[in-house]
Design a protein around this nucleic acid. Structure first.
Ligand SMILES: [Zn+2]
Ligand SMILES: [Zn+2]
Ligand SMILES: [Zn+2]
Ligand SMILES: [Zn+2]
Lengths: 163, 163
DNA sequence: GAGTGTAATGTTACATAGTAACATGTCAAC
DNA sequence: GTTGACATGTTACTATGTAACATTACACTC
């Protein structure tokens, strides 16, 4: 199964399974998926896309949660630390993880036009990276593998716009 | 030759060749390595490390250049656009490129303790990334391949510190 | 060698992103 | 019902990055 992110699919299914798995992960670790945290995850799950912390915050505020940056950052950090979301450094944004629980190394395809994000498996990438690091006697702790470009839809739109 | 960045070496040589190559690249493109730009590159070249734009700016200001952020960002952007420096998104910083001119895709090993940065070849990484993108029908324009961890020296220091 | 166009530099002012520190609330355990 | 741990909220601030515009340097023309 390749990433459905950029293609039509039953996204309700994505959301349902991601939430269910999130519950499990959190329970297994003896942590709590509190209202803010859950809502934050739901917001991220609305699209296969990335959202800035301040956009998330705005949504949370609308829902009656706090209005200050730490409210969003704390929830987002919680999700990231527990593998329920990923941070996309390239665009200072966050995206929900589609298959939390599975200990995976992910890479990201980021559409510069629509902020869409697809998560692709990165086991091989990680391995190659580790090999390079070994040669330099460097010990890797975290990796960020991100590609910026155009998703199929936005590529069409750009090509069409020129015509 | 593996990356010398984290090991003792004749760094004057790194600097000299990088500057010479920079001159060539810029001349070949009909651009100008003006004083600010050159000085910015020299500052980045002082170490195999990453510097934030504001740190660079401070140094530039000391040398009599402007004191405002755009001064640094413009010079840095020029260097990045022409392959003379790289931007490290993970830590919002910039690092000099060690072999400009050669059209290369680089990955970076970033020491979280000393901000040291080693550039490693990323042709294979890029290829794997492209393969993943192809499956998702995504067209890549730029990639960021970064690993955070500890360089050999800082790893020793940390291990030693515990003892 | 004055005039003109372009690139580069500089400035002000602002936008966006992220965090430290502390006060308050919640809730389970004892 | 008190304690302790965690979660939420706030204020206030730091850090990073840009838009917009004024000024300067310099090549090129006439
Ligand atoms: Zn979906
Ligand atoms: Zn798109
Ligand atoms: Zn060197
Ligand atoms: Zn180090």
């Amino acid at each position: 199964m390749s990433s459905p992110a950029f293609h039509p699919h039953d996204h309700g299914h994505c959301i349902a399974t991601a939430l269910a798995q999130a519950e499990q992960v959190v329970a297994a670790r003896g942590l709590r998926l509190t209202p803010v945290r859950r809502r934050t995850l739901e917001i991220l799950l609305e699209r296969h896309g990335a959202m800035g912390a301040y956009d998330v915050l705005e949504r949370l505020a609308e829902d009656g949660f706090g209005h200050q940056p730490p409210v969003a950052y704390r929830a987002l950090d919680f999700l990231v630390e527990n593998g329920l979301a990923h941070r996309i450094r390239r665009i200072n944004a966050f995206t929900a993880c589609l298959h939390p629980g599975e200990d995976h190394h992910a890479a990201f395809l980021i559409c510069r036009a629509c902020n869409g994000v697809a998560e692709i498996p990165a086991a091989r990438l990680r391995a190659v990276m580790e090999a390079g690091a070994a040669e330099a006697d460097f010990s890797i702790e975290r990796v960020n593998l991100e590609a910026l470009g155009l998703c199929p839809e936005c590529r069409m739109a750009e090509a069409g716009g020129k015509a």
